[in-house]
Computed example of a mutant assay.
Amino acid sequence: MPVPTTPRAVTRADVARYAGVSTSVVSYVVHDGPRPVAAETAARVRDAIRVLGYRPNASAQALRTGSSKMLGLIVPELDNPFWSELAVEVTHAAAARGYDVLLANSDGDVALERERLRSLSARQVDGIIVTSIMTLPDLSTVTDPGLPMVLLNTFFEVPDYASTGVDALRGAYDGTKHLVDHGYDSVGLVMGQTGSMELREQGWMRALRDAGLPDGPIVRTDFNRRGGYEAGLRMFGGPNRPRAVFVSSDMQAVGLLRALYELGLSAPDDVAVVSFDGTAEADYTNPQLTVVRQPIEAMAAAAVDRVLGLHADNQWHRDLVPAELVLGASCGCDVRR
């Protein structure tokens, strides 16, 4: 019995013969340049590609050009609106520069984050953008030590790596000061579990100290809706509740608003609320959240530009992007339009 053979892959030369053109013309049509091709000729080439089932070999192209035109992106949680919105902006910024993005989700797991780094670095991407759950991420598992990498949405400078992040300390300071300026003399903090005094907590504390106010109560919880819900029950379920609260993420703030409702309280009449992030989700709460908005479009563009232009002499460079206070009704402002 004859041994079955694997069908030969259709090549660019096959397409060129079918369409009656050179292989260079096929390449110009597939890659939309660098030279123009007459419309009638381009149509013949595309018809040949369709009929023959030709698929350009991206790996071979990468070997020829030294570039895969692909970036890797690692995010910790795709079900978190902030991370999904940031991932979308990275893909937009990359596409504007002629690159695609290979997305990996670490599920907030340190070991999985390291594995995703290994996997992406082995796939011939031209660079990796990492949004890590760790304050000081471990990037030692990358198989190519010369691969450009940028840390995105990091609040601290990480030695030996370029990074892009928001000015979280100033943003938290401005959000807390806004509550203080309303006259609230007791401002609590719902803070995600970070393992250290993070910049958002420092900004909250500095704003209170500058105003001569004592530190309000702190509840440390998970960076999700349930975490905010449980924090709200703990902070506002007793008689000594603060008059206002700064919350370290929109997701937590959504959960906190539900806790207030179940406790028979409302924002801003009983508790004024300001949260950090400024995702689209914050626009549709009741009342609409006042937020310290991270400029994710600018952050994503800065990270893509940095990873594509990274050189050994600027690996320590840090792009710090200012946050913006966006007023809703949850803080007590009259924002009726």
Score class of each variant (00 low, 15 high):
S140Q: 08
A301R: 05
L257K: 06
L102H: 01
E113S: 02
E230R: 15
T91F: 05
A323L: 09
V307E: 07
T279V: 14
Q193D: 11
G212R: 05
G203V: 14
S132K: 10
N153Q: 12
V15Q: 03
Y99C: 13
H182A: 11
G146V: 02
T5Y: 09
P76C: 12
R44K: 10
H178K: 02
V335R: 02
L289P: 05
A60H: 11
R64K: 14
T135P: 10
V307Q: 07
A267W: 00
G237S: 11
Q124H: 12
E262W: 08
L308H: 09
D270S: 05
L63Q: 14
R12E: 01
I296N: 00
R293L: 04
A60M: 10
Y173P: 07
P217A: 00
V15M: 04
L152M: 08
E157Q: 13
P295Y: 05
E115Y: 04
G183E: 03
V187G: 04
Y261L: 13
H182G: 14
E40P: 01
Y173H: 13
R243D: 14
S330M: 07
D277V: 00
G53N: 08
G127R: 05
G165Q: 06
T141L: 13
V15T: 03
P239D: 12
A9L: 15
T143H: 03
A93P: 00
P7R: 14
R226H: 01
R170Q: 01
L265H: 03
E40Q: 11
H311N: 07
V3R: 07
T290Q: 11
N153S: 15
V3I: 09
A16N: 12
V25C: 14
L112W: 12
F236I: 08
Q202P: 06
E324C: 03
A259Y: 10
G309S: 07
D160L: 12
L233R: 05
L139E: 14
N240M: 09
A13D: 11
L52R: 00
Q193G: 09
R8V: 10
A58R: 15
A244M: 04
A94F: 07
P217F: 01
T135R: 12
V110K: 10
R35Y: 10
T23R: 11
L179K: 01
Q61A: 15
G175F: 03
C331D: 13
V25T: 15
V321L: 06
Q202G: 13
D138P: 06
R234E: 15
L86D: 07
T221S: 15
H92R: 14
E157I: 09
I133L: 08
S84N: 04
R241K: 00
L325D: 02
G238L: 08
A111Y: 01
A122Q: 14
L139Y: 14
A93M: 10
A48V: 00
M1Y: 05
T41Q: 02
A93V: 08
E89I: 00
S27Y: 04
D277S: 05
A19D: 12
S119K: 02
V158A: 11
P214T: 02
R44V: 15
V307C: 01
R118L: 05
T6N: 12
F223H: 12
A162W: 07
G228F: 06
L147P: 00
D167C: 10
F223A: 09
